[in-house]
């Protein structure tokens, strides 16, 4: 179908408007993060600061134990990631490749868990963790996510697609089941594992709800919680400092997204596209 030139131009203008609607907030965030406090209190707003105030980042970073928050965030995200691989791979393998009693009931349990959001169970889990003296520790942020129903579900699909003949051949070679799982299945499922890893890492890196609810001091708080508390620094809102803090939180994710756009989109749209 041929489209006329004016329509084409309109189309491009439309695309630019869409990009502005979705990208401008981030540009605005970066621009604000480099302004003086005075420059944030001007109406109509100024697009660009007269001078780039890089000190805002230092001020944001130094207004709380941000190194601690950062380290906590890394430990929690990486810890969850590693534990999930340890628990998800064997479970997915078992559900994909073995027949055993109560398999359907147990897989049903996995599916039910997939539908239980953290926001539903945080109160009883909080009470449990408090009883087990795990409140305000990194364990309390990691252990509840030590496995992933979604991960088991997704990886099981992948494992099921591996032809049975390959496994039979390996078994004839006297490979142990563990070796088959780790040396054959896991490499074949690499794209799924990367997808899963990206999804989990980004989700838990960004998570605010769980660390907010399960921590009471800065000891185990993560970056998002620390950033969210920046606004309570003094009476008024120092938008430049606040935005600087958020730039610190957002930039790593945006850079990752820039380089791994296809994989990240695949990771986040997996359930809907299938």
């Amino acid at each position: 179908m041929k489209t006329s030139l004016p329509i084409k131009i309109l189309n491009v203008i439309g695309l630019i408007v869409v990009v502005i609607i979705f990208a401008m907030p981030f540009i605005w965030m970066i621009s604000t993060s480099l302004k003086t406090l005075g420059e944030t209190m001007i109406f109509p707003p100024k697009w660009l600061p007269d001078e780039l105030i890089w000190e805002n980042f230092m001020e944001a970073w130094n207004s709380g134990p941000f190194l601690q928050y950062f380290i906590n965030s890394v430990i929690v995200s990486v810890g969850i990631l590693m534990l999930q691989f340890i628990t998800v791979i064997p479970a997915a393998y078992a559900f994909a490749r073995y027949e055993f009693r109560c398999k359907n009931i147990l897989f049903g349990l996995v599916m039910v868990t997939m539908m239980i959001p953290a926001q539903l169970i945080f109160l009883p889990v909080f009470l449990n963790l408090s009883e087990w003296r795990l409140l305000d520790t990194l364990w309390g942020l990691i252990l509840p996510f030590a496995t992933s129903a979604f991960g088991i579900f997704m990886l099981r699909q992948t494992f099921k697609q591996v032809p049975e003949e390959l496994l039979e051949a390996a078994r004839l070679d006297n490979s142990s089941e563990f070796k088959i799982m780790m040396k054959m299945m896991v490499p074949m499922a690499k794209p799924t594992l990367i997808t899963l890893g990206l999804f989990n890492f980004i989700t838990h890196w960004n998570d605010y709800f769980w660390p907010l609810v399960m921590t009471t001091t800065e000891r185990a708080r993560t970056l998002p919680v620390g950033i969210a508390q920046l606004r309570q620094v003094d009476g008024g809102v120092a938008w430049n400092i606040l935005m600087a803090g958020n730039v610190i939180l957002v930039i790593p994710i945006l850079i990752t997204f820039f380089f791994a756009q296809r994989q990240i989109i695949r990771a986040f749209t997996y359930t809907g596209v299938k």
């Binding site: 979705f22 981030f26 965030m29 960004n206 919680v225 935005m243 756009q261 986040f268």
Partner: peptide, 19 residues
């Protein structure tokens, strides 16, 4: 454009809220 429109989905809600 698809990537740009999708980008808010992977940003922490903390930043989205404050922004």
């Amino acid at each position: 454009v698809q990537g740009a429109v999708f980008s808010p989905h992977i940003i922490s809600l903390v930043s989205i809220a404050m922004l």
